[in-house]
Simulated scan of single mutants.
Amino acid sequence: MKLRKVSAASAAVLALALAATACGSDDKDDTSSGSSGGGDKIKIGIKYDQPGLGLKEPDGSFSGFDVDVATYVAKELGYEPNQITFVETKSADRENALARGDVKFIAATYSINDERAKKVDFAGPYLLAHQDLLVKKDSDIAKGADLNGKNLCSVTGSTSAQNVRDKIAPKANLKQLGGYSECISALQSGAVDAVTTDDSILAGFAAQDKYKGQFKLVGEKLSNENYGVGVKKGDKATVDKINAALEKMVSDGAWDKAVTENFGPAEYKNEKAPKIGVIVK
């Protein structure tokens, strides 16, 4: 009788162990380990609301230059597009998302600076952007100083508009709205005369089908924004692999193709692909 009870208990323990093993093997996610590829899937942080850079489309797909860079890098790390899970990482949460291990890396208009580099490691840069102005195609605003007495829009909490007024147009009227899409709509309606933020972001909005041919970039270079790929602090192996992937993306022409496809309709005069590790101050 005792022998049968022991056998039954052992069988139950064995069944539980097998079930746990099966559950663990179905959802391998490389983002929780220190390795740099070869898992069943990978989580990558992007923006969901920046046309031309990182945008979640109505059908659930993703588009934009950052998305193209992330997809190319992931492939070099050993992942096909169907193995990628894109995770929305808003600006304020990027460092925390990496520290928590929510994502393996982040490509989300993530400008490299000294303060951020204390908390995360960066691969790249992969794009050099500048703060610029977007105006209507027929606007007489040809330079920043022309904004004196005009309405300038930026997003609430951003320092971009104040930067313009401090440096080149002290009499500009600052208008702050909840998002860049609202600023672009205000520009289209004539409620504001210009919108300011990174030229890459402005070009992405201007390249949308509903805005094609309506706007132009002025060409002011009010700041240098070195976009990098954020990686968890200390994960040098992943940084090295991403840097190699970015160099390959430039050398095989995929980088130029992605720039043209995502920003071309806005006549975006982009800088050449930056060299890995070279930060333009």
Rank of each mutant, 00 (worst) to 15 (best):
V73D: 08
V73N: 08
V73H: 06
A74R: 12
E76C: 11
G78M: 03
Y79R: 11
Y79Q: 09
E80R: 13
E80T: 15
E80M: 11
P81A: 02
P81Q: 02
Q83F: 01
Q83P: 00
Q83T: 08
Q83R: 02
I84G: 00
T85I: 14
F86K: 04
F86V: 07
V87R: 01
V87I: 13
V87E: 05
E88L: 11
E88C: 04
K90S: 13
S91M: 11
A92P: 09
A92N: 14
D93M: 05
D93V: 05
R94S: 10
R94E: 12
E95T: 14
E95Q: 12
E95K: 06
E95H: 07
E95A: 12
E95R: 05
N96S: 14
A97R: 01
L98T: 06
R100A: 14
G101P: 00
G101R: 04
D102C: 01
D102R: 03
D102T: 02
D102Q: 03
V103I: 03
K104L: 14
F105S: 10
I106P: 14
A108C: 13
T109V: 15
T109M: 14
T109L: 14
T109H: 10
Y110T: 07
S111Y: 15
I112P: 02
N113M: 04
N113C: 06
D114Q: 14
E115K: 13
E115V: 13
E115N: 11
R116T: 10
A117M: 14
K118I: 12
K118G: 11
V120I: 13
V120T: 04
D121P: 06
F122M: 01
F122W: 00
F122C: 01
G124S: 12
P125I: 10
L127Y: 09
L128A: 10
A129D: 04
A129L: 07
H130R: 13
Q131T: 08
Q131S: 06
D132Y: 02
D132T: 12
D132L: 05
L133T: 00
L134W: 02
K136Q: 06
K136W: 02
